[in-house]
């Protein structure tokens, strides 16, 4: 019995020591497995683990951007994988399960920078444009009601242009995309709350015939 009690005491001490070792390195957690080997996994600053979700076979691409609470994403849209819902075709535009049916990109306050989680969406639409050079798109920028109206027009125009620039890199032609900044004139929701404001800070992707 005596020897077992000693073990009971000693083992936790060992474990706590291990824990301390683990804590001293914030970003690398060490898993002590049964056989004593140590594995590691990357962890974001607020503790949520970012894995990689492979869509359309594009797995193994590691997200280098840890944005905390933002959901998992990868940069690349799937292609030619036989999955109809993710086909980058004109038909996909009218398929509610297809990524192409998502048409709104949201922004931070007084910012025109694209949030990383919208890269896939933007690239998917860009690929469609690249695939169908006669297809035309309108990017309608909007702002929330705070600040001055004319400045918000310029801000929302800049947001639309941010999206356009990324699409250009993906092979969409400049002549296919038209930008327009509506400022705070056409809100989606009313009300003076952070929530309403967030919903109104957006760029809407519009196709003429779809």
């Amino acid at each position: 019995m005596r020897s077992i009690r000693t073990k009971l005491v000693v083992l936790p001490i060992l474990l706590s020591a291990l824990t301390i070792v683990g804590c001293s390195s914030q970003n690398v957690d060490k898993d002590t497995t049964a056989d004593g080997s140590i594995t590691s996994s990357t962890t974001t600053e607020d503790g949520t683990k970012t894995g990689t979700v492979g869509a359309g076979g594009a797995s193994g691409v590691n997200s280098k951007d840890s944005q905390g609470d933002r959901s998992n994403f990868n940069y690349l849209p799937g292609e030619n994988n036989g999955n109809n819902t993710n086909d980058i075709t004109l038909a996909g535009l009218n398929n509610p399960d297809n990524l192409l049916s998502q048409r709104i990109i949201y922004f931070d306050y007084d910012k025109a920078a694209i949030r990383p989680e919208y890269m896939v969406l933007i690239n998917t639409h860009a690929k469609l444009l690249a695939k169908y050079p006669s297809l035309k798109m309108r990017l309608e920028g909007h702002a929330d009601e705070r600040g001055s109206r004319a400045y918000n027009v310029a801000l929302s125009e800049s947001r639309a242009q941010s999206v356009k620039n990324i699409m250009g890199v993906q092979g969409a032609l400049s002549s296919q995309i038209k930008t327009i900044g509506y400022g705070e004139e056409i809100p989606i929701v009313r009300g003076q709350s952070q929530e309403s404001w967030q919903k109104n800070r957006r760029v809407e992707i519009k196709y003429d015939d779809y």
């Binding site: 019995m1 020897s3 077992i4 073990k7 009971l8 083992l11 936790p12 001490i13 474990l15 706590s16 291990l18 824990t19 683990g22 957690d29 060490k30 898993d31 002590t32 049964a34």
Partner: peptide, 23 residues
């Protein structure tokens, strides 16, 4: 004794996230 020790080792095999509990 051996059995006890073995079973202790087995049941208390620490998972990383539970390392703090025995302490």
């Amino acid at each position: 004794g051996g059995l006890f020790f073995f079973s202790f080792d087995w049941s208390e095999k620490p998972d990383l996230h539970e390392a703090g509990i025995p302490i």
